[in-house]
């Protein structure tokens, strides 16, 4: 049996020499966060708000580390002005974003940013790559990291809610 998509994403992080992971959690990221936290060669930082991750990973890059920011689509709304740091300095940047509010979502408060996330990122000059198929998650992240760090670009990989699995109001996570 092939690896699960979070395990494949973790392999990409290792292969692409990503050393710093910053995150505000989502249930869809929990497996990947666990893998990163357990790796002694990775520096994993839990944030109080997502825009801090943009600044933090810019500092990481200034110090020679590659990073990836993990968040959910609602967090994109918190990031908007801080994205100007990436554009003004042409910082390489990658965010892996779990989409909420778009596929059987139980919580209507997730819907606005779920709908707006691709447009908000695009308007702030972040390249958006959406993934709907589990098998394409890892290759898409790998392409985004390579392109961003080779070309000094900001990019985001959106993992669709259908891919992650619908969040169930009755479930524990």
């Amino acid at each position: 049996m092939s690896k699960s998509w979070p395990d494949s994403l973790f392999d990409v992080l290792l292969r692409q020499k990503v050393r710093q992971i910053a995150y505000v959690p989502d249930a869809g990221h929990s497996r990947l966060i666990d893998l990163c936290t357990a790796n002694p060669d990775m520096e994993t930082t839990v944030l109080t708000t997502e825009e801090d991750g943009i600044a933090l990973l810019s500092g990481a890059w200034l110090g020679g580390d590659r990073g990836v920011l993990l968040m959910q689509s609602s967090g994109v709304g918190n990031c908007v002005n801080m994205l100007s740091l990436l554009e003004n300095c042409r910082m390489p940047f990658v965010s892996l974003i779990t989409m909420r509010g778009e596929w059987g979502e139980f919580n209507p408060w997730q819907a606005p940013m779920g709908l707006a996330t691709p447009d908000v990122l695009t308007r702030m000059n972040v390249q958006v790559h959406r993934v709907d198929e589990p098998d394409l998650a890892a290759p898409t992240l790998e392409a985004a990291i390579a392109q961003s760090y080779d070309g000094m670009l900001a990019s985001a990989v959106l993992l669709s809610q259908r891919l992650i699995g619908r969040k169930d109001f009755e479930a524990e996570d």
């Binding site: 991750g53 600044a55 933090l56 810019s58 500092g59 990481a60 890059w61 200034l62 020679g64 740091l85």
Partner: peptide
């Protein structure tokens, strides 16, 4: 401070 934190962790 967040940018400085990322830098400090890298160096």
């Amino acid at each position: 401070a967040a940018l400085a934190l990322g830098l400090a962790l890298a160096q």
